[in-house]
Amino acid sequence: MTVGGGPVVEEEKAEGFTFPPDVTQLGIISAIIAIVIVIIPGLPAVVKAVGVIFALLWGTDSVRKTSKYGLGTGVPSIGVLAMGYGILGALVGIAFAGILNVSIVQPGVLIGVIAMAIVGLISGVLSNNEKIIGMKIPGLERGMMELGMAGTLAMVLQFSIVAGSLNFDLVIEKAVSNGLIAVMFVLSMMAMFHPYNACLGPDERRPRTLMVSIEISGLLCIILGIFVAATAGSTWGVAGLVDGISLLIFGLIVWIVFFVKFIKTAMREAHSTVGTGLIRTIE
C-alpha cells in the first residue's frame, strides 16, 4: 500500500490555515513545550492540556511522516504502537517522579521519556535493518523514537491533569485503577493515527491533517474535564472543580474551532461537495 502518489510538489495554498514549522521544527517546538509543562505538575489543567495537544500533534506528524511510505498493516498500527510504548513510558516516568525534585520542578518523569526514546530507537533500528525485518522506510528509526517520546509525554500529562500531581500512588489511585487509563489510551491513539488515516490520499495536505489531531485532542480535554470536575475533592487548586470546568470549556472551544475550521478547509479544497440531504450542508 503506497499512498501519496499524486503530484510530488506539495503546493501550499496561501489562504487558509497553515503550519509554518516543518516536521523537524514542529517536533522540537512541541517537545520543548510538552517537556517544560510536564516537569511542573503544579500547573493548572488548561496549561497541561496545551502540552497534551502539542505532544499529540508531534505524534501525528511522526505518524504521517512514517506511514507515508506504506507500512503494510495500515496507518493505525503505528499509532497503537506509540501508545503501547506511551503507557509503559508513563508508568516508568511516574515511578521516577519522586526523585530529583527541585522545589516544584520534577524532572524525574523525563527518565520515562528517555527510556521510551531508547526502546523506540532500538525497535526502529531492528525494524528497518536490512538483515532483520527490513521495512526499508526512510526515517523509521527517528519516527519510532519520536512516537515513543510523544506517547509517553501525552500519557504523563494526562495522568498529571487527572491526579493533579505525579505522585505514584496518587496517579495509580486516580487515573489507573479506576480504568480511566483505557479511555486515555484509546483517545490518545485516535488523536495520533486517525488524522492521517482519515485524510490520506493524493491531495493530502499537512496543515489539514494536523487540524484533525487538535480537534480530537479537544474531545480528549472535554472528557478529562468532565472527569476532573466530577471527582474533584476541592473547589480550587490543581485537579479541583474549577480546574475541571475550565478544562471542559477549553476543550469545547478547541474542538468547535478546529472542527469548523477543518470542515470549511475540506469544503474549500474539495473539487465539489454534494449534500445527501440528511444533514444540513454548510456552504
Binding site: 503505528i78 501508545m83 509503559l88
Partner: peptide
C-alpha cells in the same frame, strides 16, 4: 487494571512488530 493495561501495551508493541 494497571497490570492489564501494561500487559496490553507490551503485547500490542510486540504484535505490531510481528505484523510489520
Amino acid at each position: 487494571t494497571m497490570a492489564g493495561v501494561a500487559a496490553m501495551g507490551i503485547f500490542v508493541a510486540n504484535a505490531i512488530i510481528a505484523a510489520y
